[in-house]
Design a protein around this nucleic acid. Structure first.
Lengths: 188, 188
DNA sequence: GGCCGTTGTGTACGTTCGTTCCTATGAGTT
DNA sequence: AACTCATAGGAACGAACGTACACAACGGCC
């Protein structure tokens, strides 16, 4: 009469060395999927299949976790973007690489697009995240300045931001041809 | 023994014909000030100095209230923008009006800027708000097409969106001169 | 002046949240 | 093998949330 007692089903898994890293990744997944507002401790714990307490153990607060997640995201995208710019031999190639970055890397995966916008808004209200956005903006501009003068780089940067926003939210985003034409008008 | 009884301090004010309108305005204020996430029934009620129940009486749900608020905001900004475009006699004047719109109307009041970005993100997750953003985007483009061909209008629209985002979040937004130069490069 | 239906108000309910805390476990060290 | 301490796990707390609802108050109508 005690075999299948109402034991609360103890969790078996133990000692998970990469867990902290996985939590950061899962956080980005949840934010991309449902937005920052829906990225609660519980939602992330469920998505990562870890108990609730594990989150507050690894990260002192939800803001800390967001900061870690966005920092990772910015590092990933900024590194990829700078590599593209570094690989370009001249200005024309840089513009084409920019088109590729926009249509291939970003617009291809709605994920990075959405994460960017979510980061922008979260940072607008949260001082702890503002540094991450600032870092992204300055790295992005520095990459552009490999082939563009500072004034043009700044204008292109603004246009790119607008294209990202448009693409993330509009029903009919601009295609590669239109983007290329706009970039050349601005920086060609 | 009953004069100053612990009566819960009945509210005196009654019959407030313009209340529904005021609630919409107050909602925009709260969103601009603290973001959509902080715009709760209670926060708005406090800001408008009305009891909590008044909100659910006038608006069936929080989403309904947001939709009403954003619709009003879009109507205001879109009307002002279209008037500027309509008043411009030619393409050059239209571009200058656009600069004026950006630096004067929008960047002058951080408020409209922030509201725009908040709307974008809220709409990305909430189907009921998506129609409002679509309306804004199409009206904005139609206004631009008074003086620009459709292709250019679209590019300018994207650039403007990027400038808005940059201005709302960057520490050193572009000034009127730079904005004018960028617009002329793109559409001049 | 008395009735009625719209409008206004206060409270309560059930849910979800971030965070805290106590206990259990096992890898690494001695 | 024994000990230790960083990690893991689950329950609990108080606070805040959206919403529902019962009752109060008053303008408009007879």
């Amino acid at each position: 009469m005690s075999a299948d007692a109402p034991v609360p089903a103890r969790r078996a898994r133990r000692y998970d060395p990469g867990r902290r890293d996985r939590l950061v990744d899962t956080t980005l997944d949840v934010i991309a999927e449902n937005g920052v507002a829906a990225a609660t401790h519980r939602a992330i714990a469920r998505a990562a299949d870890v108990p609730l307490g594990s989150l507050t153990y690894h990260f002192g607060s939800l803001t800390d976790l967001f900061a870690a997640a966005f920092t990772r995201h910015v590092d990933t995208v900024a590194a990829r973007f700078d590599e593209r710019m570094r690989a370009a031999p001249d200005r024309a190639a840089a513009l084409e690489a920019l088109v590729e970055h926009l249509t291939g890397d970003l617009l291809g995966s709605q994920r990075d697009l959405v994460l960017a916008v979510e980061l922008y808004v979260a940072a607008a209200r949260n001082p702890a995240l503002r540094a991450v956005t600032q870092d992204w903006m300055s790295r992005s501009r520095r990459s552009l300045e490999r082939h563009l003068d500072p004034v043009t780089a700044r204008e292109v940067d603004a246009l790119v931001e607008g294209l990202v926003l448009h693409s993330a939210l509009s029903t009919d985003p601009m295609d590669a041809t239109r983007i290329r034409s706009a970039l050349h008008r601005l920086a060609g």
